[in-house]
């Protein structure tokens, strides 16, 4: 798994690449932008090939903590394999999911303005 961070219109975009399972999930949890509860981020999943429940748990945990402190985590470009994991576990309802990263960034900026 590789994590790449980008900044666009003042919003952090975290791009996840490769696979996330029990062996890589701790790394995801430790990542600065993801673990920072006050930072609104967009997670770009376009290049994520595989996600299991350990990875899902890490994402949900981070989203919970962001939500508690008024920040958001938006997801974009989920492929079919990854979407299936969210779908089966019923955790789709937790997230705002976009099919394009740019749209997610736009939404994140409007969220920030309204706060």
């Amino acid at each position: 798994m590789t994590i790449t961070e980008k900044l666009s219109s003042g919003i952090t975009i975290v791009e996840l690449c490769g696979t996330i399972d029990a062996s890589t999930a701790p790394e995801l949890q430790r990542h600065q932008a993801i673990s920072d509860p006050t930072r609104t981020i967009v997670i770009d999943l376009a290049r994520l090939d595989f996600l299991d429940s350990s990875g899902l748990g890490a994402i949900i945990g981070a989203a919970h903590r962001k939500e508690e402190s008024g920040a958001n985590m938006l997801l974009s470009c989920m492929n079919q394999k990854v979407r299936r994991v969210f779908d089966i576990t019923g955790t789709v309802r937790l997230f705002h999911i976009f099919d394009e990263t740019a749209a997610a960034i736009d939404y994140a900026t409007t969220l920030r303005k309204s706060q």
Partner: peptide
């Protein structure tokens, strides 16, 4: 194709979330 939505989504959000489509 298939995608998920959030329980609070209205029409503008739907269009935004599926902008690529």
């Amino acid at each position: 194709t298939y995608a998920n939505l959030h329980p609070s989504d209205g029409e503008p959000e739907l269009l935004r979330k599926n902008r690529k489509f």
